[in-house]
């Protein structure tokens, strides 16, 4: 399965290794791991709780992975996103992409993260010294996703 939405932690090393396990056509694996920061927008963050839309979340991530496969020639894609309460330093998200060459792996990994940020139905609520607050979406996330609109397929 290439997409998982789960409460539990994951092992980035195991996930990264699995993308090239037993294969001799993979020339590179690019991975991204997103973590909980202890500060956001000037406030300390004790913890955050990630809410999601069960059913839609899995489908949205699968469609994003599929879109990446249609844009680049990829040999493996793995996306894991956690939900529930997470503390600073904990892992939130893993994206791993295997390809024959690094260009495709780097680009597809970044593309998946940019699309996930604007299309996967997750919402963060932070616990701060001033109380709990929902995290606002950033316009920079929209512009990061939009820049792929003009990118030609690089195969």
């Amino acid at each position: 399965m290439s997409v998982s939405v789960q409460r539990d932690d994951f092992d980035p090393g195991v996930e990264s290794a699995a993308l090239s396990q037993g294969r001799c056509d993979v020339g590179g694996v690019a991975t991204f791991v997103g973590l909980v920061r202890a500060a956001n927008e000037g406030s300390g963050v004790f913890a955050m709780t990630l809410e999601h839309y069960p059913g839609m979340t899995e489908r949205a991530l699968e469609e994003i992975a599929e879109e990446a496969r249609s844009r680049w020639h990829l040999l493996g894609v793995r996306v894991i996103h956690r939900y529930g309460r997470l503390e600073p330093g904990e892992r939130i998200v893993f994206v791993g992409v295997a390809a024959a060459h690094r260009g495709e792996a780097f680009a597809a990994c970044e593309f998946i993260m940019d699309y996930l940020k604007t299309r996967a139905p997750f919402w963060k609520r932070e616990e701060t010294p001033e109380g709990a607050r929902w995290v606002d979406a950033r316009e920079s996330d929209d512009s990061a996703a939009a820049r792929w609109d003009d990118v030609e397929m690089r195969r």
């Binding site: 997103g34 990630l50 999601h52 839309y53 839609m56 996103h81 939130i92 998200v93 993260m113 996930l116 940020k117 604007t118 299309r119 996967a120 139905p121 997750f122 919402w123 963060k124 929902w134 995290v135 606002d136 979406a137």
Partner: peptide
């Protein structure tokens, strides 16, 4: 049908 604020995952 679902309504929600802009998403903030990742």
């Amino acid at each position: 049908i679902a309504f929600f604020p802009p998403v903030t995952g990742g």
